[in-house]
């Protein structure tokens, strides 16, 4: 479903080369819920951005549903992102001028879905996150937890194959964080594949599969360093920390 083989990402400035990811190998199967942990600056968000096609990678192969992402143009990546991926961000990233209904509508409009179908999906998603009565509210009229639920509804509305969540509870208190996590678990039980970057080890333990990124590599990468590359690829994606 999602396969990364020897992915590398290098940020180049005039004098310095920074390797954000190196020889990063991962396979994700349908329906998985993966928590990605690791220290700050280890490359978690870079991995998530590359997985979400938000930034290009420097080397390696990235297959998403049998599509070779490396060969796609920017517009094709945008289209694929719109079709297959839903994002949940730490800062919610709702558009302040748009009400909840309109915020959720954004990805559906870019996909060219007709108005009646958009309405049906938005109402369904708002119902799911328990904010159906707030459709006309602006984001700033909601609490942080509610805003994150709107962001989840927005991610779900497009019926994506993957939900990529970057610290989805990072700006929330523990109660709200737990509610959001429960919502993600419910979505996963319904069949969505979720990759969640988090600093919160407690939340990470609730995910069925954990991987750890350290210095731009999977933490258990060293276990396989003496083996042939094919084998590395085959092993890539094995959990470094089992919950």
């Amino acid at each position: 479903m999602l396969s990364m083989k020897n992915i590398s990402k290098v940020y180049q400035t005039e004098k310095v080369q920074t390797h954000a990811l190196r020889d990063f190998n991962l396979n994700v199967d349908e329906g998985e819920f993966i928590a990605v942990t690791g220290p700050s600056g280890s490359g978690k968000t870079t991995f998530l951005n590359i997985a979400g096609m938000l930034e290009p990678f420097t080397g390696g192969d990235f297959m998403l549903d049998d599509v070779n992402v490396g060969t796609l143009s920017d517009n094709q990546r945008a289209d694929l992102r719109n079709q297959k991926i839903g994002f949940i961000f730490q800062g919610f990233n709702l558009i302040p001028d748009l009400n909840l209904y309109e915020n959720i509508e954004v990805p559906l409009r870019y996909r060219g879905i007709k108005s009646a179908e958009r309405k049906r999906r938005i109402e369904e998603c708002l119902e799911k996150v328990g904010l159906a009565s707030r459709a006309k509210h602006l984001p700033q009229q909601l609490s942080g937890g509610q805003q994150q639920r709107v962001a989840i509804a927005r991610a779900l509305a497009g019926k994506p194959r993957f939900l990529l969540a970057d610290e989805p509870t990072g700006n929330l208190d523990s109660l709200m964080a737990r509610q959001v996590m429960e919502l993600l678990e419910e979505i996963n039980r319904e069949g969505s594949t979720i990759i969640m970057v988090t600093h919160d080890s407690e939340l990470a333990r609730r995910a069925p599969r954990n991987i750890q990124v350290v210095d731009g590599q999977l933490a258990d990468f060293t276990l396989y360093q003496n083996k042939a590359m094919d084998e590395i690829a085959a092993k890539a994606g094995q959990p470094a920390i089992e919950a």
Partner: peptide, 16 residues
């Protein structure tokens, strides 16, 4: 630009 970033993440192409 931040709003544009969100729109791009949600599937807007550069052309759009």
């Amino acid at each position: 630009a931040p709003e544009v970033g969100v729109r791009r993440a949600l599937g807007a192409s550069k052309r759009q």
